[in-house]
Amino acid sequence: MNIIVPIKQVPDLVEELEINADGTDLDREWLKMKLNEFDDHALEEALLMKDESGANVTAIALDGDDIDKALYAAAAKGADRLVKVTGATGNSTHQAAKALANAIQGMDYDLVMTGVQSVDDRDGQLAVILAHYLGNSHVSVVTGVQASGGSVTVQKEYGAGMVAEFEAATPVVLGIQAARETPRYVPVAKVRRAQKSSTIEEVAAGDAAADAGSTVSKMYKPETGAGAEMIDGSAEDQAAKVIEILTQKGVK
C-alpha cells in the first residue's frame, strides 16, 4: 500500500497576526509557521497504517518557507520518501491542488491522505479539490481508515457524534479530521538526524495554472471584544466579579 500525504505549513495562530500594507493578506515577513495540525493527523494515520501493515508513506509538499524542516520532521516520524514540488506560484487551494496533482499523477499510490482543512484555505479544502484534479474519488472529515485489498473502509464524522461509514475503492483521496492516536512527537535531535540521512526529491510543478476564481478585496480583524465586557484586575478580583455576575444573573 502506497500512501501519499500532502502537508503544508500554516501561520501559528498563537502568534499575533498582522495585516500587510495593502490590507489583503497577512504580513508574512515575521510570520511564525507550523505544520497544519490536520496534516499532522493525516501523517499520523498513515504512519499507524505503516506500523500495522507495512505501508510506504510519502510526504509531499509545495516549496515554501520552512517546508524542508516540515518534510524532515515527517521523515523523522517515519515517512519513507520526501517530495518537494517546486515552481508552483500563488497560494490558493486550487493552484496548490493542481501542482500537487501534477506531481502525484506520476507516482504509484493507493491512498492520498491530507488534513481535512487548513486555517487559510479560503478557496476550499485541499482533499476534495485535489481528488477532482486527479480524477479520483474522495471522502472528507475522516476519523478512521481500515485498508483491505483494493479498498478502504472509512468513518466520516457528521455532527453530534453521528458517524457514516463508507467503502471506497482505491485510489481514493481522504481528508483526515483526526488520527486514531494523538500525532507522535519527534525531538529536534531526531529531525536533525533525519536531515542528514534522508533526501528531499524535487519535482517540478509543471503547468499548475488554476485560479482561485476570486480576488480578496480586504482582510481585517473581527472586532475582538466587541461582544464581551472585559473584566480586569487580578485573578482574585476577576473571580469576585464573575461571582457577582453569576449572582446577578441568577445562575448561582
Binding site: Q117, H132, S140, G213
Partner: peptide, 19 residues
Amino acid sequence: SMGMDIAGGVSVDANLPFI
C-alpha cells in the same frame, strides 16, 4: 461535514470559483 465533500468537487468539475 457533507458540504465540505461537495463544494470543492463541484468547483473543479463545473469550473466555478469557490469561496
